[in-house]
Amino acid sequence: MFEQLKTATPLETVNVTLDGVAITLPKGMTLAAALLVHGAYPLRTSPVQGPDGPKQRAPYCMMGVCFECLVEIDGKPNQQSCLAQVRDGMVVNRQDGAPDIKGDRT
């Protein structure tokens, strides 16, 4: 599993809410990498069901190609966490299967 390089200088951390729980993550780190190090893994379940139910998924390419790293960020669903950076006060929710249709999004 992923961890920060032992030799790296410790990064300043900021407060993030993950699935409703307050956690701290390194400021400015790529969100997908920070979530992997935090242990938020697998990251989501597939919206499409296989013969034996939804599939567990996690970031694959880290370069914006595969769309396996999708999370909800600050209320916006399906954001690529490998293209986002950790910000103070960020609210992240993991996506479980297909989304509900909500009427209140702008």
């Binding site: 992923f2 961890e3 920060q4 390089l5 790529t30 990498a33 992997l36 998924r57 390419c61 880290m62």
Partner: peptide, 22 residues
């Protein structure tokens, strides 16, 4: 498609951008 399988390029990006390794 299993979590835990990534590209080598992904590992290199994590090393360069975030100092994160497996």
């Amino acid at each position: 498609t299993l979590p835990g399988v990534m590209t080598a390029g992904a590992a290199q990006i994590m090393l360069k951008a975030s100092g994160v390794v497996a």
